[in-house]
Simulated scan of single mutants.
Amino acid sequence: MSEVRNAMASYIKQVHKTKRPVIITQHGKGVAVLLSASEFEAMQKKMELLSDVQSSLNQLAKGEGILHQEAKDKLLKRVPQCR
C-alpha cells in the first residue's frame, strides 16, 4: 500500500495510457482496482445492459414476454419519428 501511495501519479498515467486497470495488492492478494473513470462508466453501462438482458430472459422464462411485432408496434407508437 505504501508503494501505491508513493506512485499514485504514475499508476494513474499508466491506467490512462494503457486503458487497462491496475490491480493493487496487499500481502500478495488483490484488494483494489484502479481504472479510468471512462472505463468505469463503460463497465457500468455494460453491467446495466446485462442486467436488463437477464431480466428479460427471466420474464420470458415466466411466459411474460411479448411477440417481436407487438414490441415493435409499441415502440413505434412511443417514438413516431422512427417510422
Rank of each mutant, 00 (worst) to 15 (best):
38 S>L: 08
34 L>S: 00
66 I>Q: 14
47 M>V: 13
19 K>L: 09
47 M>P: 00
58 N>E: 09
67 L>E: 15
56 S>L: 12
54 Q>K: 03
31 V>C: 03
64 E>R: 05
32 A>T: 05
22 V>L: 02
7 A>I: 15
30 G>R: 03
29 K>Q: 13
39 E>Q: 13
57 L>R: 02
8 M>S: 12
20 R>Q: 15
59 Q>G: 02
12 I>Y: 02
62 K>H: 06
1 M>Q: 08
58 N>C: 02
25 T>G: 00
37 A>Q: 14
66 I>T: 15
59 Q>P: 00
8 M>T: 11
74 K>S: 15
79 V>F: 12
45 K>C: 02
49 L>H: 06
1 M>F: 07
32 A>R: 09
17 K>E: 07
40 F>E: 10
1 M>C: 04
29 K>I: 10
44 Q>N: 10
11 Y>Q: 02
51 S>N: 10
41 E>G: 01
20 R>Y: 07
62 K>M: 07
6 N>V: 12
49 L>R: 13
66 I>S: 10
26 Q>F: 08
1 M>L: 07
8 M>P: 01
47 M>Q: 09
71 A>W: 13
12 I>G: 00
1 M>S: 09
11 Y>I: 12
40 F>R: 08
34 L>H: 01
22 V>F: 03
52 D>A: 07
78 R>K: 15
34 L>T: 03
39 E>S: 12
16 H>N: 10
19 K>Q: 12
13 K>N: 14
2 S>G: 05
66 I>L: 11
57 L>S: 00
37 A>L: 15
13 K>D: 13
50 L>S: 02
6 N>D: 11
23 I>F: 05
69 Q>T: 14
43 M>N: 07
60 L>I: 12
78 R>T: 06
27 H>A: 15
67 L>Y: 15
55 S>Y: 01
53 V>R: 02
71 A>V: 12
24 I>K: 00
56 S>T: 09
42 A>F: 07
10 S>L: 13
32 A>M: 13
76 L>K: 14
36 S>K: 01
77 K>D: 07
63 G>E: 08
44 Q>M: 09
51 S>T: 13
62 K>Q: 14
20 R>N: 11
58 N>L: 05
13 K>P: 01
70 E>Y: 08
39 E>A: 11
78 R>V: 06
30 G>N: 09
43 M>L: 10
67 L>M: 11
21 P>G: 03
31 V>F: 02
16 H>E: 10
47 M>R: 10
38 S>T: 15
8 M>Y: 15
61 A>N: 03
70 E>V: 09
9 A>V: 08
46 K>H: 04
33 V>R: 05
59 Q>Y: 04
74 K>L: 15
20 R>H: 11
75 L>Q: 10
30 G>E: 12
